[in-house]
């Protein structure tokens, strides 16, 4: 792959443009479904696009004591999430990749949270700092079960290449449990409702995002949206890839609906409950799956 094709991949097809459009559609499905669950009508199809364009037109307010990280962080998080979606969708569409790309993917997917922590922490706002503290605890709690349950797929297929994992991973008890754990932990990564402790509109007034406005807020929201549209593809790709194109689309939509349902039927946990849940329930479960896989494969 030369530079031009990689640039094309990054900017247009599986990269920025594609994931932007997909995120608008996924956002619509999410919001409309939420509205129907609450007996409401819900927003129009392009609502997320309107929101983003509106935020572009607004003034950007930078707090007096903020340093350059405040402005840089949203750009870094968007760039990294687009890179992650390029790697994942390239593996799905073109069956291309490199050895170890699943590790790279896991690393890249943590960058948005870290960027948000740095940017929001530099804004010198008290409420933002509470949000930052919670975001750090959240990051520490969900990464452990996430990586452990990804290990199930890696050990099962004995490969670190995304394409090979996709084509060799058969559905079994441990992969189903592991995929559900990944679903829940990734839900925490995007900050959806049972785990939205760092945003917490009602108690922290949108927490980590409180000082962001205009374009910067739009970029952060877009990052979350793209990540949201990436999760079903991630889970379907790694654990349930076998089957045709149609099967992939159906599984993608099913996981999307499942995520929306989880977010609509659960109350927000407290931060200590999140840590306990991730470390003492999800992590032993994931470890059990790893042991099961080892027993089966050896």
């Amino acid at each position: 792959m030369n530079v031009l094709t990689s640039l094309f991949l990054y900017l247009f097809f599986p990269g920025f443009l594609f994931s932007f459009m997909l995120s608008v559609i996924c956002g619509y499905v999410d919001r409309k479904l939420t509205a129907r669950i609450q007996y409401r009508q819900g927003p129009p199809l392009l609502q997320n696009l309107y929101d983003f364009l509106k935020l572009l037109a607004k003034e950007v307010v930078v707090p007096q004591d903020a340093n350059f990280l405040f402005i840089l962080a949203p750009f870094i998080s968007l760039a990294s999430v687009i890179l992650a979606s390029t790697i994942l969708w390239t593996a799905i569409f073109f069956k291309k990749g490199f050895v170890g790309d699943i590790i790279v993917l896991v690393y890249i997917l943590t960058i948005p949270s870290i960027a948000l922590i740095l940017g929001s922490g530099s804004s010198n706002n008290v409420i933002a700092s509470i949000g930052v503290a919670r975001e750090i605890k959240l990051l520490l709690s969900y990464e452990l079960p996430l990586i452990t349950s990804l290990l199930v797929a890696i050990l099962k297929t004995k490969s670190l290449k995304l394409v090979e994992i996709m084509h060799n991973c058969n559905v079994s008890v441990e992969t189903v449990i592991a995929s559900l754990i990944v679903l829940i932990t990734l839900q925490a990564k995007v900050g959806l409702v049972p785990f939205d402790v760092s945003e917490a509109e009602t108690e922290l007034a949108s927490g980590v995002m409180i000082e962001y406005s205009g374009l910067l807020l739009g970029l952060i929201k877009l990052t979350k949206q793209i990540m949201f549209s990436l999760i079903p593809a991630f889970i379907t790709g790694i654990y349930y890839y076998k089957g045709g194109v149609l099967a992939f689309i159906i599984k993608y939509i099913l996981f999307l609906i499942l995520m929306t349902l989880i977010r609509n039927t659960n109350p927000r946990l407290k931060i200590d409950q999140v840590i306990k849940f991730c470390w003492f329930i999800l992590f032993p479960l994931a470890l059990l799956c790893v042991i099961l896989t080892l027993i089966k494969t050896v």
């Binding site: 509205a35 927003p43 129009p44 609502q47 307010v61 509109e201 949108s206 000082e211 962001y212 406005s213």
Partner: peptide, 14 residues
Amino acid sequence: VERFGVQLVGSIRH
């Protein structure tokens, strides 16, 4: 009012 895109936000910056 989400039909018209109206949303309640928690921060004055939004």
